[in-house]
């Protein structure tokens, strides 16, 4: 595995002007993005914003109406190009009656892996994903949701693709397993994989992604690193600590604490505290969360 210095690394996954129209309705329009090796790009948006469709177009499942998607320079609509992609669908449509090992062996052969190689990779991956060995030979239908998801993730990684396209990778996982997954994704990033993921859980995106792409109604509403987005879209919020109650405040220890969303409201709150004979003890300025940014973009 080659570790590319970020500045020189060529983008592995490129979407240019991707669009999908159903009749006159555009589900996705003009999506242009790229993912370089050793980076994680997060695709964020509300339900129906076009995340899944965009991901499916990128891995060649859905034929775009406009634009192209390429992996390592090859159009993903060409079956051969898909060898370079590991795709994890939102639900894990595996065969309930198969065991994890049999499932991985089957997909290994689909991707042209030799049997031995495939088995070795499957075992390594399952171990890295901390799926206990007794589960390897149980039918997937009998595994817990979290364990089945791990098998699905192992399947996406089996053929050692340079690009990972993960649709809601954390769906159905409990918090502990989710943290494990985050750590695992960061390892993959360090190995030089180009990773594109979509997520509902915005905390995960905040923690993991180098670049965040905000989709709204099928179009890219904003993109950049978290701090860039905060800079562009964040209206700071303010947390006011006072010794008297004021509207919207709740007691926190000896002090009353409340949050307001604009400087004007802050002034008003301060005035009220003073009018009631209280003293503002502290005013904190908070950075906007991704959630706030998303809400602003969607509201706009």
């Amino acid at each position: 595995m080659v570790k590319w210095p970020r500045a020189v690394a060529r983008a592995m996954l490129v979407a240019s002007g991707l669009g999908k129209h159903y009749g006159p309705v555009a589900a996705v329009a003009e999506v242009t993005l790229e993912v370089r090796p050793g980076t994680i790009v997060g695709l964020v948006g509300n339900n129906g914003a076009g995340k899944s469709t965009t991901l499916k177009m990128l891995c060649g499942l859905v034929e775009p109406t406009t634009g192209t998607a390429t992996v390592d320079g090859q159009a993903t609509l060409r079956p051969a190009a898909r060898k370079g992609i590991g795709y994890l669908p939102e639900d894990s449509p595996l065969y309930d009656e198969q065991t994890p090992l049999a499932c991985l062996a089957f997909f290994g052969s689909l991707y042209g892996l030799r049997r031995k190689e495939s088995k070795a990779r499957a075992e390594t991956l399952l171990r890295r994903l901390r799926l206990d060995e007794p589960f390897w030979k149980k039918p997937i239908g009998e595994l817990s949701k979290g364990s089945a998801r791990k098998v699905a993730i192992a399947r996406a990684l089996l053929h050692d693709p340079g690009v990972l396209i993960l649709d809601e990778p954390a769906s159905g996982l409990d918090p502990a397993t989710r943290r494990e997954l985050d750590a695992f994704l960061l390892e993959l990033r360090a190995e030089g994989k180009a990773i594109l993921l979509s997520a509902h859980n915005l905390r995960q995106v905040e923690d993991l992604c180098d670049t965040i792409v905000l989709l709204h109604q099928g179009q890219i509403a904003a993109r950049g690193s978290l701090s860039e987005l905060r800079h562009a879209f964040g209206t700071p919020r303010y947390r006011l600590h006072a010794d008297r109650p004021f509207p919207g405040s709740a007691p926190q220890g000896p002090l009353h604490v409340g949050e307001v969303a604009s400087p004007v409201l802050l002034e008003e709150a301060l005035a009220r505290v003073r009018a009631a004979g209280g003293t503002p003890v502290e005013v904190e300025s908070l950075p906007p969360s991704l959630d706030d940014i998303l809400r602003r973009v969607a509201g706009a």
């Binding site: 499942l61 079956p79 795709y87 669908p89 449509p93 595996l94 991707y111």
Partner: peptide, 12 residues
Amino acid sequence: RHRTVLLLASPL
């Protein structure tokens, strides 16, 4: 059960 997705996403 949407299982064909994985085959479609493979290089086949």
